[in-house]
């Protein structure tokens, strides 16, 4: 299945993508929008399941998830198998938290770390396969929305920036994965 961002945008308004009973299952969407109920895509269901786990979130937008998954596997086809492996690992070892799954994944197979990174980048930055899938709906803006706006989407009115933003305590949590080189792209 090759799901284009355009197709997702076209079909979300037709409820062709839906979440079943609050769980992570997602209906698949073909390249051509159809009003009929589509079949469940097991690959996408597995992606959503480990996405919930790796974000420690129970609710993620299914339409965005479908587009992110399509972008990830289109850019890197081996991610399909790696996502299956993450799903199997989570089920086999009954892993609950993001930290547990990420640690176990890197321990089991170092290449799974890249898949975890792709999933984090996809949900938090809205980027899959090096392309922007969503911008203001990326989770990084959801978790900072009490303080700041995504660029080009400020809605506080003139001079909102003079007010005091929220204080943020120093975090105590530890990284789950080994560190990776951080390369700032040149301008």
């Amino acid at each position: 299945m090759r799901l284009m961002r355009r197709d997702v945008l076209l079909t979300t308004g037709m409820s062709a993508l839906a979440v079943l009973g609050g769980g992570p299952a997602v209906f698949a969407q073909g390249a051509t929008p159809s009003p009929s109920v589509p079949a469940v895509d097991p690959d996408l269901m597995r992606f959503m399941d480990i996405s919930h786990c790796l974000t420690d979130r129970t609710a993620l937008n299914a339409a965005i998830g479908a587009a992110l998954y399509a972008g990830i596997v289109q850019a890197t086809p081996q991610r399909r198998g790696q996502i299956q492996a993450l799903y199997d690992l989570k089920a086999r070892e009954r892993l609950i938290t993001a930290s547990e799954l990420a640690k176990a994944a890197e321990k089991a197979d170092k290449t799974l770390k890249d898949a975890v990174h792709d999933i984090m980048i996809a949900w938090y930055r809205g980027v899959a396969g090096g392309k922007v899938v969503v911008y203001r709906s990326a989770l990084m803006f959801d978790i900072t929305k009490d303080a700041i706006y995504p660029k080009t989407y400020a809605a506080g009115g003139p001079f909102y920036w003079t007010t005091k933003p929220p204080e943020v305590a120093r975090p105590t949590g530890l990284p789950a994965l080994s560190p990776s080189p951080f390369v700032v792209e040149p301008t």
Binding site: C53, L54, T55, D56, T97, A98, S99, L101, A102, V116, H117, M120, I121, Y124, R125, L139, M140, I143, T144, V168, A169, R170, P171, G173, L174, P175, A176, L177, S178, P179, S180, P181, F182, V184
Partner: peptide
């Protein structure tokens, strides 16, 4: 912040705390 925190190896709830900080 998001790119830096992911590169440091954070995921899930700990990642979100790092991004905010």
């Amino acid at each position: 912040a998001t790119q830096l925190a992911i590169a440091k190896g954070f995921v899930g709830r700990e990642l979100e705390e790092q991004i905010r900080y």
